[in-house]
């Protein structure tokens, strides 16, 4: 377990351009281990860009990133997964021809060792490893209550279930930092409540640090420990949900000038 002597994730004056468009300008954010941090902001504020920088899909033009005191600014995405950063996507990015089980087993990829040859021969160690990690994956399936669909191809599942499977795949990686990009988008109230419950359980039972992007302010204010507000690529506010709600800059960004 990571001992929280300093923030688990440090985002230091991150700047990101796409050609002439600036997506992020000098964003600074520190995330403590075990906390739930929500990133909010109007559409196009740069929230997903920030998550993409943390998981390595975008390389920032300036600024630095530290995860558990190790610089990861130029680390490739698959290395960051090995370091313990997992994520889900806004538009579900599951392996849609594979079953729920296979998707979750792919989440175990970095914890498994079976190579090409032993996998193809499927003897001794390869078979034992499959069974061992299958057990772990089944625990996650139980946790998310998706037992009945484990052998279904995810492409055939309903939207809400796909979102849940994607969370399961990220959890199978056993990340110490989990990035959730709009985990409740497009869900009805009941599905949102379920998802909020899962997120809180993950933070409490597994001690996972969470960064989530969410538009539902009710959910954000209820479940997060800290809230960061982005507007036009700049961080305009940060603090506890109560502090952020009172912040005049946030009110202006969301409601316009009073």
């Amino acid at each position: 377990m990571y001992a929280p002597v300093s923030p688990q994730l440090v985002i230091d004056s991150l700047t990101l351009h796409f050609g002439g468009v600036t997506a992020l300008t000098g964003v600074h954010l520190e995330v403590n281990a075990g906390e739930i941090t929500a990133v909010i902001g109007p559409n196009g504020a740069g929230k997903t860009s920030l998550l993409n920088c943390i998981s390595g899909l975008y390389r920032p033009n300036a600024g630095r990133l530290f995860f558990e005191e190790q610089e990861i600014t130029n680390t490739v995405p698959h290395r960051r997964a090995e370091l313990g950063i997992g994520r889900t996507f806004q538009n579900i990015e599951l392996f849609k021809h594979l079953t729920v089980l296979e998707n979750l087993m792919l989440g175990r990829h970095i914890h498994m060792k079976t190579g090409l040859l032993s996998g193809g021969l499927f003897w001794g160690p390869a078979r034992r490893e499959e069974e061992l990690h299958r057990r772990r994956v089944e625990e996650i399936i139980d946790f998310l209550e998706i037992e009945s669909i484990r052998h279904k191809a995810v492409g055939t599942l309903a939207y809400g279930l796909q979102k849940r499977v994607e969370l399961g795949r990220a959890l199978a990686l056993e990340p110490r930092l989990l990035l959730l990009d709009e985990p409740m988008a497009g869900m009805n109230l009941e599905e949102k409540e379920d998802m909020a419950r899962f997120i809180l359980d993950v933070a409490e039972e597994w001690g996972t640090t969470l960064i989530l992007i969410e538009h539902d302010m009710g959910v954000v204010m209820d479940i997060s420990d800290r809230v960061a507000v982005l507007d036009f690529g700049r961080k305009i506010a940060e603090g506890t949900p109560e502090e952020v709600q009172q912040n005049p800059l946030v009110i202006r960004a969301y409601l316009g000038k009073q």
């Binding site: 698959h78 997964a81 599951l94 021809h97 594979l98 990686l173």
Partner: peptide, 16 residues
Amino acid sequence: MAVRDRDLAASVMGIN
């Protein structure tokens, strides 16, 4: 198969 279905998602799952 992960590379075939969604290569970006595969890379954030730790697949080189």
